[in-house]
């Protein structure tokens, strides 16, 4: 696919903007494609609703906003409720299992087969905690996404993590990425959509 629109949404403090940044950086710097990220946030530093919108394309991106997201990563109930209905038929919704109770009725489902929105759930925060710190739940989700959709190359994602984070944090974040990626691979082959 030559153009991907990805929305990552949740609360300030969950690493929503960082996740969007790493995705865009992997595409722009390491996969050598065009990528644009815009973000929205409130005046509070922590706790307010926040989202980042990433577009990845082979052509220059003029309009930087999502028209119909191909992918939604929802890290909060509010984010899911608000943005899940926008996801394009045939698109992908990834939720943080322990923070979002999915309501399949919110998804656009224009019949069986390719047009259905696929929904996957992952206990990203729990996985992150098991790895050592809940702060990397966002990176677990990115790993999950990379396995479920060919948006960016996994090697590009790893490079983006290495080049963007403080030295002391790289190892944990790479482990988080691999854990999410592995879960994604299993989910894809098992087709265990929610």
């Amino acid at each position: 696919m030559s153009r991907w629109e990805v929305k990552i949404a949740g609360f300030g403090g969950q690493g929503i903007i960082l996740a969007g940044y790493l995705l865009g950086k992997a595409a722009a710097v390491y996969d050598r494609r065009h990528a644009t990220m815009v973000q929205s946030y409130g005046p509070e530093a922590r706790g307010s609703a926040c989202n980042s919108q990433v577009i990845i394309a082979d052509e220059p991106i003029y309009y930087p906003y999502l028209t119909e997201p191909d992918v939604l990563i929802a890290m909060s109930q509010e984010a899911y409720a608000r943005f899940a209905p926008e996801v394009k038929p045939g698109g992908l919704v990834l939720i943080e299992r322990d923070l979002v109770a999915p309501d399949a009725g919110r998804l656009r489902d224009e019949g069986p087969g390719e047009d259905t929105v696929r929904l996957y759930a992952l206990p990203a925060t729990k996985i992150a905690e098991e790895l050592g710190h809940r702060i990397v739940a966002n990176i677990v989700m990115l790993g999950f996404l990379c396995a479920l959709a060919p948006i960016v190359s996994p090697s590009g994602m790893r490079e983006a993590v290495r080049s963007s984070l403080p030295k002391s944090a790289i190892e944990l974040n790479l482990m988080a990425f691999e854990a999410g990626y592995e879960r994604g691979r299993l989910s894809r082959s098992a087709d265990d959509r929610v």
């Binding site: 865009g24 065009h34 644009t36 990220m37 991106i61």
Partner: peptide, 9 residues
Amino acid sequence: AVIGHITER
């Protein structure tokens, strides 16, 4: 504000 904060290649 959009161009100041937009993150791109």
